[in-house]
Simulated assay, not measured.
Amino acid sequence: MTERYDTAVEQWRSAAAPKRHVRGLLKAMAAGIERCMYCEDSQGTDIDHFQPIAHDPLRAFDWLNHLLACSHCNSNTKGRKYPCDDAGACLLIDPTTEDPAAHLVLYLASGEYEGITPKGMATIDVFKLNRPTLVRGRRAAFVTAKNLLWGWYEHRQAGRTDEAEEIVEAISESPFSAVVRAIMTLPTPVARTVMGAGTLPAMDEWRRHMAAVPSPRTGPGE
């Protein structure tokens, strides 16, 4: 195992051209602007091996094991960590196959995550998702999202389609997209308190608008 690991690490380190290609593809595929798949900040610079090379050297060049991550999540916090339960199943949320909302709750006012499953708790711990810079970023994103949502609604009501679409693009490319998702799942009584009663029509209109947007195709004929 040690020999396989050493060989895989050496081959990965020396694969400059393939890594540039993979990194470029991951950045092009990322939602938003080079968004880290773990913390959702727009600082995706690294190719992360979801299952670290130390755990499975044979997956070093496995495309399905490559995710775009910021250097903090990839190197400073995760590193070789790959927690598993007693049955050997990984305890980290795989953002390519799982909905993080099934494992995490985001509190909009504080900007902090709470794990509601073992996977959620392990993911928060490994990636330090409540580190101060991310908490501050989510709080700021919440204030920004509220104002953008209201501005978008006013443009829609006034028939200013181009201006409204500019805001849609700004929201889609903003970091911390989980903030917008959390806003849209708020029950009405909670939304009235957190967002303000005047924002409820904008939230309802946004839900209708997004429901009508066609899903992007994932392949020919799909």
Rank of each mutant, 00 (worst) to 15 (best):
G115A: 02
D62C: 14
R80D: 12
T7P: 14
G88M: 06
I124S: 05
G32V: 03
V168I: 15
A69H: 00
R136H: 09
E10L: 07
T188R: 15
I183C: 05
R136Y: 14
A202R: 07
V126P: 12
M121S: 11
I93H: 06
G159R: 07
L64M: 14
P18S: 00
E34T: 03
W150L: 14
D46M: 04
P52K: 01
I93R: 04
M210Q: 13
Q11V: 03
Y38T: 03
G111H: 10
N74D: 01
L92R: 04
A145I: 03
I183W: 04
G111L: 06
A140M: 10
L67T: 01
R131T: 01
I124Y: 02
W150M: 13
E173A: 06
G79A: 01
C36L: 01
I124F: 05
V9L: 13
D94Y: 06
A8N: 06
L67E: 01
R208S: 12
P214K: 01
K78D: 02
L58H: 15
G221A: 02
A140Q: 12
R80L: 10
W63S: 13
K146D: 04
L26Y: 07
L108F: 07
P189W: 05
E3A: 15
A197I: 09
E166I: 13
H103F: 03
P216L: 08
H72N: 06
H103V: 02
H72S: 06
P18C: 00
N74P: 07
R156C: 10
G159Q: 04
K146M: 11
C73A: 06
R23G: 05
T123R: 02
R13T: 04
R192E: 11
V143W: 08
E173R: 11
C39K: 04
Q157T: 15
W12E: 06
L91S: 11
P57W: 02
G137Q: 12
R131Y: 04
R139E: 08
A31F: 14
S71G: 09
S215C: 14
H103A: 05
A8E: 07
R207Q: 12
T185I: 10
